[in-house]
Write a protein that binds this DNA or RNA. Sequence first.
DNA 1: TGTATGCATCTTGCATACAATAAAGTTGCG
DNA 2: CGCAACTTTATTGTATGCAAGATGCATACA
Lengths: 234, 234
Amino acid sequence: MKPTPKLQCLHDLRRRILATEIAPGTDLDETALSEAYGVSRTPLREVFQRLAGEGFVELSENRGAKVASMDLGTLRTFFQTAPLIYSSVARLAAENRTTAQLDSLKDVQISFAAAVGANDGGEMALRNHRFHELIGEMAGNAYLTASLNRLLIDHTRLGQVFYRPASVAESLAVRRASEQHDAMIAALEAGESGVMVELTLDHWTLSRDRMERFVRPDPLPIDVIQLSEKRNAV
Amino acid sequence: MKPTPKLQCLHDLRRRILATEIAPGTDLDETALSEAYGVSRTPLREVFQRLAGEGFVELSENRGAKVASMDLGTLRTFFQTAPLIYSSVARLAAENRTTAQLDSLKDVQISFAAAVGANDGGEMALRNHRFHELIGEMAGNAYLTASLNRLLIDHTRLGQVFYRPASVAESLAVRRASEQHDAMIAALEAGESGVMVELTLDHWTLSRDRMERFVRPDPLPIDVIQLSEKRNAV
DNA sequence: TGTATGCATCTTGCATACAATAAAGTTGCG
DNA sequence: CGCAACTTTATTGTATGCAAGATGCATACA
């Protein structure tokens, strides 16, 4: 693992996209980025191609690279697909995980818990991303991993939105999520695929509810009496 | 759609890999291929990156590109995953297909039937590939499509093996597959997702059985009497 | 005032030349 | 004769320069 500028650029772009530091739909300028990362345009373009393959960006002819957008259609398919893939991967992970992978997962979970303690929303989202990415690796199924990683990109980007504010209710949900991670590690270690699947679905439900509440928050208070008076007045 | 040499190269490499004209595991030489396709190494490398993103090839640092291998692990996960993804995609395709997509699908099926008539195994496999790729597009689910397309790559490459010989039993199976395609088109047109899923699973079973029979053929005849005589002789 | 066309500028795409890295072969020494 | 270190060679990775395409603006005409 040597920090060649090209790989550093690749990793940093991934991170920035996941952190929505670069917003979905943003055009990526070759010249500017190549100067910023100190690489020439040639390797940068290869990085773009690779990011495109992973679903981080979209390429179009003579139009350069653009961060993958998240429109209504994307969101719809996201909610449609996530439970299926997540639970399938969870089952396989419990069956196939190696102890080395389990150790890595534990490390990541420690980092995640630390971020929760520090109330660092961005860090939490990224560690959470890595946590689930690792579970994907445990499953050892290249076909599902392709799906999973794309789901995780959008999941993390959506998560950035509501990891930030950290109201009291939110931080409670985050602690709950962290506990679920611990339980998952236990289930994976024991190879209890059934438990793992159930935990994963619970985890999904928790996350989904928070996303839904963000999209459709409680309506602002309406002064009902005033409204009815108005109606009578007319 | 203009035939720029770069895209031509991309498509041709895809075709050759699917046709196992370039065998799994083969190393791809940049210099040789760039000369062959009349493009410089720079765009060719971008093609490699793209093919890697699609799962056709694997890249490794300072080691160039290699056609995606198909070892035992790959096969195992392939059989494990295919029915799940195929049926999920089938359901969505029936719900979301546009008439334009349906027209394309009909065209491809005509080509497929023609290839069956001409007994052209390679062409059959490629048209079949495109048929199922289109169903993936109909589903309109980028996450599942990522999985599906990777499955299809390996499915087509496996298929090349047994599409070739075309014994009497084989050609019967192929005709059966073609009929299933027709039925699928009808189900998609009617939006009958349940029927579509069932057809897809039948289609999978047919394909799987042929693959299994190829991997584990009927054993050679054993002269049992001779063997038992030998045993007595010892 | 609205629209169309031509020009200028900027961005992307490609090829060639050069640098770095890995593989293979050779030579020297034990 | 065998092993090891060094040199050579082949192949990959990177940079720069140029060409082609796209975008935006200005000007002219309806």
